[in-house]
Design a protein around this nucleic acid. Structure first.
Lengths: 130, 130
DNA sequence: TACATAGTGTTATATTATAACAATTTAAAT
DNA sequence: ATTTAAATTGTTATAATATAACACTATGTA
């Protein structure tokens, strides 16, 4: 229920690293950064990443194969995510818009079907790069 | 300007294959399927895929690393895409909703920024799998 | 013609991710 | 406290996805 639930050792190490990062981090970059802490193999990283995504502490930026910490206190799990991505500097920001999430959560396709989950990635130029 | 523009030999072979497929196709599955037509190396496939995505004849399903033909006559280029993905059978459908594309194209984040491009993936269960 | 652009073919390699198996830790339930 | 189940860890190997670099060929067009 609470995002402060205990993480395992590897999960905590990897979450801390991603959380401190100002940019999305890639799995093998994470690996290089945590080898000094005893995490030696890709699988150790991927397992922690899978779990952290599952519980909503981090999100995967699918178009970049990279991971960022969740900064949206209302998302316990990664089921309704939206990001803006700068095509020049690759800065990624999580979008927290109540109207957007409401619109997408309630969206029905032409068969009247609603979806339990979505991921939205916007692309453009960030303030600095414009 | 027109989607009927001429494709190169490899592009046409690969587009035809994807277009005939009822499911998203992965790059190496495409490769296996076109080896009899003389396309032998991954790079030949990826180059054709890159171009086909660029001109909007196909789209990449980012969460699945797979490609489907565009069936939305209004999208010359892959700049505003939305898909539904069944989490059981992996069926993928391109969503063509004028109101959705209007909403997302006009969406402004809290800094008032609009985006030139987006990709949205909805997840749930399709009719058959419910 | 000559020039630029796009496409092709090829080998090698980089990057991203999972399979399979064994051991250990943790939490909870008895 | 003890057993049990679930989660986590460690490890080696390998699968799957994607790009670098280089040489050559085709196509359009000035």
């Amino acid at each position: 229920m609470d995002k402060m639930q205990n993480l395992s050792k590897n999960q905590q190490i990897i979450f801390d690293l991603i959380d401190k990062s100002s940019e999305p981090m890639k799995a093998y970059s994470i690996l290089h950064n945590v080898q000094k802490k005893g995490i030696k193999a890709p699988l150790q990283v991927y397992r922690a990443l899978d779990k952290l995504v599952e519980i909503g502490k981090i999100h995967k930026i699918e178009s970049r194969n990279a991971f960022i910490a969740c900064h949206n206190s209302s998302c316990q799990v990664s089921k309704a995510t939206a990001f803006s991505i700068c095509e020049i500097c690759e800065k990624v920001t999580e979008i927290s818009s109540a109207s957007l999430s409401k619109y997408l959560t309630n969206f029905k396709d032409k068969d009247g079907m609603k979806y339990s989950k979505y991921n939205l990635e916007f692309f453009g130029l960030c303030k600095k790069c414009r």
